[in-house]
Write a protein that binds this DNA or RNA. Structure first.
Lengths: 225, 225
DNA sequence: ACAATTCTTAACTCATAAGTAAAGAAATCG
DNA sequence: CGATTTCTTTACTTATGAGTTAAGAATTGT
């Protein structure tokens, strides 16, 4: 009874296809060089049809960004593990897997490249991505502090230290050099070292935590890789 | 006797002006949206004249990037101070002052935004900027290790930890949100905290070094700010 | 002061891309 | 099955920008 008419279903599917195509083409070519003909072709339809769904290139871009922002929010779940160290390790790996995905890097490049022209987009990206993850991490770290496992004055700085330690170098390199996405061994190296520094600086039981870190193994490569 | 004819002097000056204008306009608008008319106007001359100096937009961009790369290399000198902690602090501030300059951030955004289209430019930027600074820092840290002040297994990772700790968060935010260049108090906060974490993790005399850090004050704001 | 060089002005060609219109074909609906 | 809706095809307008030309003005050199 709630089944939509075929026509409406098709409209929803086509809109979906257009937004996906827009993401691909904008990410590859940047806003200006991506043409509406290219995006229509990528979506498997024609430009006049595309214009029936989105009245202008700007509106398509904005809609695509809004959609992607919502998708981004879904990516940052918190893996559960046994113990703070295992949790930090699992999350570091999860975060790395998301952030270093080629499509995510392409999107980041797009946003950074357009940040001057579209300040709201940059702001929205920062709010839905990094700031959101940071807020979650701050809460997590404060819980660990309350449980006596960590000590720090400023939870925000501690959370930012963690990202800086585990992913700053590979991500920056990958942003500058698209071919330079690190392999899993390299990511492991950064994560492990970053967590060591973090635990040495903030843990109330550094020896025990470093030993726990030594026993952890990286997660299997995800199918999306 | 070595004085160049006025004509040659003017050519050199004009070329300089064109490259400066190119940097400004490309940084503000990105490669595609920056027009040769805009750049000529910024340089205070006309498009046909501009084409007398640089045969195409691509070649102007490449020349501008090459020029900027050489400029970048000049920016990363090593301030001298008394003691390792003071040296790290001074350099952290120096690095922050360079990297967070609006024009440097604009250039970084430009490079990141064009990285897919111009992989060589991204590679050259990485090699002349971050990799270069990193190499210097690695050498410095290894000297401190040899002198018994630091302990680490991997100098490269230690050097990357330092950048990640002191500047990763503010720089990323500034890349996404052009208005969000941090004030000096915020930079101080990141640098001080970052160095604390670094010293706690790697110093052979953490208490002493943290005390030394406490006594340091930020450098005066530079005139270029 | 005159000649040579360089720049400016004004106009141009060509290509590209955003956005649009109309007619016919295809898909869906009742 | 005919009516309606939606999409495709084809062609179009307009604007923009890379790159170019020619004539006259300005600058430099001798």
């Amino acid at each position: 009874m709630t089944a939509l008419p075929k026509r409406q279903q098709n409209r929803i599917l086509r809109e979906r296809r257009i937004l996906d195509a827009a993401l691909v083409v904008f990410s590859q070519k940047g806003f200006v060089s991506a043409s509406m003909d290219d995006i229509a072709a990528e979506a498997g339809l024609t430009k006049p049809t595309l214009y029936q769904y989105f009245p202008s290139k700007d509106e398509l871009f904005t809609a695509m960004m809004t959609e992607e922002r919502d998708h981004m929010l879904e990516s940052f779940e918190y893996p559960s593990a046994s113990g703070m160290v295992a949790e930090l390790y699992a999350f570091s790996w999860h975060y790395a897997d998301v952030v270093l995905r080629p499509d995510m890097l392409n999107l980041a490049r797009l946003i950074i490249g357009e940040a001057q022209r579209l300040p709201d987009v940059g702001r929205a990206y920062q709010a839905s991505g990094p700031d959101r993850v940071l807020a979650g991490m701050i809460a997590y770290l404060e819980r660990q502090r309350a449980a006596g496992r960590l000590v720090f004055d400023d939870a925000e700085l501690a959370a930012e230290d963690l990202w800086g330690l585990i992913l700053s170098a590979p991500r920056n390199r990958a942003l500058h050099i698209p071919d330079a996405v690190p392999d899993r061994g390299t990511i492991e190296r950064y994560i492990r070292n970053g967590l060591r520094v973090f635990l040495r600086a903030y843990s109330t039981a550094p020896e025990k935590d470093l030993a726990a870190l030594s026993s952890l193994t990286p997660p299997p490569a995800t199918a999306t890789e």
